[in-house]
């Protein structure tokens, strides 16, 4: 096989904090095919961003460490790679990231042109002039108006939406096979969000890259993703094609999550918004067995003793004893 650009198997990432060890990513497995968009959704603190940073080799140092599992990009194992190799051969070239906040993700004291040209110079070993010319083309590709003029401008002269385009140009300049977008739309106006999502779609169509789209916004995930992986307390609880998941969520957490989305025109009991009872577990002290068990309405004794594995069930994967 291996039309998959990325295969993540039993990935375990720990954060060694002064107060204890956080199992930020706990036995996570998923794969992404070329041209496919996988949504990674979950609440804040569920381990989405740490999963993304694990793939990029950019875990917070010295606290974060990959302690188990494998990350295979085109069959190449990444989890044991050292930082220098990661920087020279993987980041920006094979995997790139579009970050969360466009207002703070560009260096304020360097021109847009030099920032977009930097990865080109680094990975293609072009001269400064060639790299700058290519950077201009990249800005044109992400539809920044009058790019030849704009390359000499600085980040503060760009709007949030335009900065996000610049970031997209910088990330995709060397045509990575995998693009990670970490909440790229959450800091933008809704109209700009739509434009950016169109742009991501276009960039992906052009390059055929896989896209890992990290978000807490179920609506954005529904409109952009082919498949969705739902994370809870560091683990993937359900993976399914996006239409299947939204039509018939299987895992109790996924059902609760979708039921929490307020809908216009649909009155709930006593006119209140639905929420899952209880709170997410303390990441320093995860419960035995299934992490969702304390909040689950289908909970059985076994759920408190063993953690359910992610099992394939008719085209989707679910980690729950009751639903399996």
């Amino acid at each position: 096989m291996s039309t998959n650009v990325l295969e993540v198997q039993d990935l375990q990432t720990h954060l060694h904090l002064r107060r204890g060890v956080v199992k930020a990513v706990n036995q996570v497995s998923f794969s992404i095919a070329y041209g496919e968009t996988l949504g990674l959704i979950g609440e804040s603190g569920s381990g989405k961003t740490m999963t993304g940073l694990s793939l990029l080799g950019l875990l917070p140092r010295p606290a974060g460490r990959i302690v188990g599992g494998s990350i295979r990009l085109n069959g190449r194992e990444l989890s044991q790679l050292n930082q220098a190799t990661y920087a020279a051969q993987i980041r920006g070239k094979e995997i790139a990231m579009i970050s969360q906040d466009p207002m703070t993700s560009l260096n304020p004291v360097f021109s847009i042109g030099s920032q977009v040209a930097a990865p080109i110079r680094r990975h293609r070993h072009d001269t400064d002039q060639t790299a700058l010319a290519l950077a201009t083309e990249e800005l044109h590709r992400v539809r920044v108006p009058s790019p030849a003029l704009r390359i000499s401008h600085f980040p503060h002269q760009f709007s949030g939406g335009m900065r996000q385009r610049v970031i997209a140009a910088m990330a995709t300049a060397c045509r990575p096979n995998l693009l990670i977008a970490d909440e790229p739309t959450s800091a933008l106006d809704v109209t700009i969000q739509v434009q950016l999502m169109d742009l991501l779609d276009q960039l992906q169509d052009e390059s055929g890259a896989g896209l890992l789209f990290i978000t807490h916004d179920l609506g954005v995930a529904a409109s952009l993703c082919d498949r969705v992986a739902v994370m809870y307390a560091g683990s993937v609880v359900e993976t399914a094609a996006v239409t299947d998941l939204y039509a018939a969520p299987a895992h109790p957490y996924t059902r609760g999550l979708l039921a929490s989305v307020p809908r216009i025109g649909i009155k709930t009991e006593r006119g209140r918004l639905f929420s899952i009872p209880g709170t997410p577990p303390d990441p320093l002290d995860l419960p035995m067995g299934c992490a969702f068990a304390p909040r689950c309405d289908l909970v059985k004794d076994r759920c408190h003793r063993e953690s359910p594995p992610l099992i394939d069930k008719g085209g989707r994967e679910i980690a729950c004893f009751e639903v399996q």
């Binding site: 920087a87 020279a88 970050s99 969360q100 703070t104 993700s105 680094r122 990330a171 060397c174």
Partner: peptide, 16 residues
Amino acid sequence: SDYIRMARSVGLSERA
């Protein structure tokens, strides 16, 4: 800062 993380995420060398 975010822009340093961005610079790292496109593979720039730690020296630069």
